[in-house]
Write a protein that binds this DNA or RNA. Structure first.
Lengths: 204, 204
DNA sequence: AAAGTAATCCGCGCGAACACGTATAGTGAG
DNA sequence: CTCACTATACGTGTTCGCGCGGATTACTTT
């Protein structure tokens, strides 16, 4: 199965809930880690981790929604499943609109939990793939000099070399040299590829 | 204001609710239309309309969620605000995940209603713009012959003309002629533009 | 401190390869 | 017959690899 290295992080202040959830998930052959509060989880988690977080809304200290916000701030793109005993509709709407994949109410059935976890892990795999692409693109683009970046930005907007040359007030041959170096440095095989790369790297 | 031609469609079986909502929205200088049930709204609405729909979940005949699904099937991309007196959390989660912009509970405050309507109309404007682009792209691409489409698909993946020629087992000059016709028919000014167009037209 | 050295960036010219518009024309399907 | 597809030929413009030079910065050597 593809979820071999995915981990479900359970953050809940109630030990009984933690154990119960952990058991249900472990029985599906998915690895689990439990945390007593948001702070402990924040200390432990990494931006690259694959899996999902099951977060209790109501906790002493930082609550679930604050944790969601903090994770987002720290660029930790872990899909979140909220779990609560005392939620209301506005809260659930806010959570889902803020990007949570699900909002479950206690007591949760095994079926709903596992279904939510599976789709969250699936989401996490997508995010991880995209993140790798993004990181790869960014690191390649980082090798470019400022001037090369100038040329690239115009090139991927479809300007021909002559136009770029006019725009930057340099010889058209120089533009081509820059472009050539850009291609080599980024490993792009053609302009379309470069445009895709720049797009993935967030430069558009 | 930019919402001059946006219309809020209210679908609710309770006349008192309809009138109350319509009044609040009309006071914001936004035009309103009311409908007693889902079927009447479906008969009246068009795919191109700008604005949003405020839909009661619980209605005789087709209910709010079914209406959402039906609108989606008919490709009517109107942002939806649900309104209900007897909703629960799973329902709200499902609705938001299915694309609704908000899920309000009766009785709704004027403030929340207007805020939801404004963001929904803003969303509608985005959708409309995208939809125009998509439609435009599709209609341009529709003029292409099958062979031209073959050539285009390879071209926008970055293959040089010679490769395309080898791949299709035709002369490289013929490929260039196809490409030229493609550019003329679609109005694209260069390859990147064509790729963007194909992307907008959903051909990738 | 001064001189040499390496690295980096920016620039130019030449020539080969490639792309593209125009013109001309043959073949097969509807 | 018309339209789509194919092909050929010529001319022009664009792209791109290669070699070379000037300017700046930083690091090492003397």
């Amino acid at each position: 199965m593809s979820n071999a290295d995915a981990t479900v992080f359970i953050i809940d202040d109630d030990p009984a809930i933690r154990d119960s959830l952990a058991l249900m998930i472990a029985q599906e052959n998915i690895s689990v880690m439990t945390f007593e509060n948001a702070e402990a989880f924040l200390d432990a988690c990494q931006p690259e981790c694959l899996g999902c977080a099951i977060i209790d809304i109501r906790m002493p200290g930082m609550d679930g929604m604050q944790l969601q916000e903090e994770l987002s701030k720290r660029n930790i793109l872990l899909p979140i499943i909220f779990l609560t005993g005392h939620g209301d509709i506005p809260m659930s709407v806010r959570a889902i609109k803020a990007g949570a994949v699900d909002f479950l109410t206690k007591p949760v059935t095994r079926e709903k939990l596992i279904s939510a976890v599976r789709s969250a892990i699936c989401e996490s795999e997508k995010i991880t793939t995209e993140s790798i692409h993004h990181h790869d693109a960014t690191s390649r683009l980082a090798a470019l000099t400022d001037r090369e970046r100038d040329v690239m930005m115009l090139a991927i907007q479809g300007y021909p070399n002559k136009e770029i040359a006019r725009h930057l007030e340099i010889s058209h041959r120089t533009v081509e040299i820059h472009k050539s170096k850009i291609m080599h440095k980024t490993g792009a095989i053609n302009l379309l590829d470069l445009a895709r790369l720049a797009h993935e790297g967030g430069l558009i």
